[in-house]
Amino acid sequence: MLGEFEYLLIAAAVRLGDEAYGAAIVQEIERASPRKCSVGALYTTLDRLEAKGMIKTWMGKPTEERGGRSKRMVRVTAKGVAAATAFYETVQQVSRGTSWEAVRAGVRQ
């Protein structure tokens, strides 16, 4: 089972497609969620996911925008897609029939 951050990372990489690399994933996660994405957490999670065979990474071409430095490109493997799907389905299953609006209103009272 994936962790929350692992899921966010895989989802962002899938959404970015061929343009998935470190900085782009950071921006994608920060745009979609209120949390700040630390570069340290990102790179250690990338390593962990690659070791599990859920993603594949390689060094891309250097660009001027990056001060002539290369990107670490990311591609999600079939195993990664399956794990992210299982995570998403679990969240959906466990949330079925739950209205967060109603729960929030109940907590307020």
Partner: peptide
């Protein structure tokens, strides 16, 4: 190091 410093520059 190359990838991380590049990310800092881009961000």
């Amino acid at each position: 190091r190359e990838a991380v410093l590049g990310d800092f520059a881009e961000l």
